[in-house]
Nucleic acid binder design. Sequence first.
DNA 1: CTTCGCAGGTAACGCGCGTTAGCTACGAGG
DNA 2: CCTCGTAGCTAACGCGCGTTACCTGCGAAG
Lengths: 375, 375
Amino acid sequence: MARSTAEGKAPGKAAKAPKAGKTAPKPAATTRQRGVTMTDVAKHAGVSRTTVSFVLSNRENAGISEETRNRIAQAVQELGYRPNAGARALASQRSDWYGIVTEIVTAPFAVDIIKGAQDQAWLDRRFLLIAPSDQADAHGPNQGLEDAAIEKLLEQRVEGLLYAATYHRGVHVPESANEVPTVLINCFDADGKLPSIVPDERAGGRVAVERLLQAGHRRIGIINLDPDIPAAIGRLEGAREALAAAGRELDPELVVSGHATADGGYAAACTILDRYKEGEGRPTALFCLNDRMAMGAYDAIKERGLTIPGDIAVIGFDNQELIAAYLRPKLTTVALPFEEMGALGVRTLAALTAGQPIAADQQLVDCPLLERSSV
Amino acid sequence: MARSTAEGKAPGKAAKAPKAGKTAPKPAATTRQRGVTMTDVAKHAGVSRTTVSFVLSNRENAGISEETRNRIAQAVQELGYRPNAGARALASQRSDWYGIVTEIVTAPFAVDIIKGAQDQAWLDRRFLLIAPSDQADAHGPNQGLEDAAIEKLLEQRVEGLLYAATYHRGVHVPESANEVPTVLINCFDADGKLPSIVPDERAGGRVAVERLLQAGHRRIGIINLDPDIPAAIGRLEGAREALAAAGRELDPELVVSGHATADGGYAAACTILDRYKEGEGRPTALFCLNDRMAMGAYDAIKERGLTIPGDIAVIGFDNQELIAAYLRPKLTTVALPFEEMGALGVRTLAALTAGQPIAADQQLVDCPLLERSSV
DNA sequence: CTTCGCAGGTAACGCGCGTTAGCTACGAGG
DNA sequence: CCTCGTAGCTAACGCGCGTTACCTGCGAAG
């Protein structure tokens, strides 16, 4: 290194002419000006920038006269000042931003999670940055998308991370998510200790079957999903509980698994309906573990000249509005509480970032029964 | 509040001894350290911060030796350095962020617009900030939400704004949107000159009816939406054109408007089907102007013991996957190009912010026919 | 020998803001 | 007289980074 320190130039603080008179009116105030800074506001109001900062951030302890506050407010108005979120974040070392990384952007099934989170964040005066992840198993063309998404969010210095899945399952969250508080929504940490928020499938299954029992049905067919996924396990267990509470058992013969589609539901319903004759063991109600399968079941029932709910009652799960509310008759179903989970996710994150304890490592959210016309 | 969150430990800058020699291996490099700055990287690599900046932003003209580049890359790696997006935006006066304000968050019908925009933004290495707006006519409880949303986005210093609607219509965009380039998606500016991107409803209607004609149908019933909305006007006009091209006219008797729901479609289909006897003027095909109505029409047709497409062919519009792909038989329909519109919106915005001219003030996006099994 | 160009850097300023020391009256207490 | 608040401000630093001006060899041209 040559030359002992710079020293040479550095006229330094020279600039910034003293600007004594606060009376200078500076009439050149064009409205709706871009790049209006806090300093402009200060000048316009005839105070220092610090004072403006104090007023804008509602600092209570350091008293500013009411009159000064008003002058500043007016200057803000007249100049159309708008704070620079980036600069604020930089200076204050906090961002008021959360990030949510989710495959829901690419597979918009559980889109209400985003809505719920978004709304809650908005209420908390925080901003939700949404980053897309790739589909489920991450072997698609967008291999690294998920890591990149998290990376991007961290570059924005989000204070917390939400990770949401389209359907209830175990997931592996990339390591980098550990750098900030992270909450899982509609999924759970397959190998770690991240707090998660999932639907209470079991209670949902219970309430569905209870409803059917209450309507007088004694033989209840169950159209099951892939038996290994959390949704199927929980819902079936709930069904079993409801039956047990009524002193009955779940008849394995009445449980048919199928592909989680309308076609799968159609096939499964056909199987069950054709296995018995009316009155001779044929179920009078069908609990379909998701609405798409219920949609198929509708067809199978109608095809056989049976009516809903007259001959066969049907109850679904998921409350996919587009299906449940438009099927004829409208489908009674158990709702997946997407919005509520999203909102709770944000609230949990808020607690975490504030260093407060959270209720539990895994929070269950209730799945309410939505009565329509199929029972 | 104390900051003792999960990662509460975070020994912070503690380490980071001056480290003059570039040979120092610095074994204390804890991975996953927060608050690593560019200066840290520079020290670690034994260069100045400026050099690091040059390397990281790929400055070509100012030559940095390959070896230096590598040392820096390695330092970045070892320290887990992550640029601070906010600081970068502040210094460079550009943000690489777009904002999208949309009611889609609250009414997720056209959610693919977001997906398309998100994907395109990602490709362009830009970040899409999503802000919720209130429902359509803005007389809900969230009155000021929309303005607040735009305000928030501008505080983030987004370089451009996207404004997306759930269904094709005219909208009034708040004034503040004029401060940055703005593009409308799936809607158009009712009173101004903002560029917009909308589906080509007319071509969509044309292709649907052409398909039916090509399949040999001569009497085509049309189940119309509210006749005053852009979608209805365009699609109907397209149908008329297709008929005209085949030397036919649109028979007003065969056009029935109804509520845009499954029930509405059911009622309208009943009206049409019951008005004529088979072979005596009863249409052999139904063009439903949206998929929900097609869903209802299916019921009406099946109820009458008719088959699809054997007795009556059905074609829908919108391609609501949840309906179209799960109806039995699967519904042939015209797709609303949501993703494509979202992507084009981002591309248009990129052009605008770059000062380039855009193709046209109103860009039409094609609505492709999706062949399934109902024709 | 001086001069110039060029490769390979570095010091320092400022982006807009939060925040911490002050600094100036001005009145009360000793 | 001096000290000590307290109300009501202001100067100045630094957040992490992009960027401009400048500096230092060093070999080639003049």
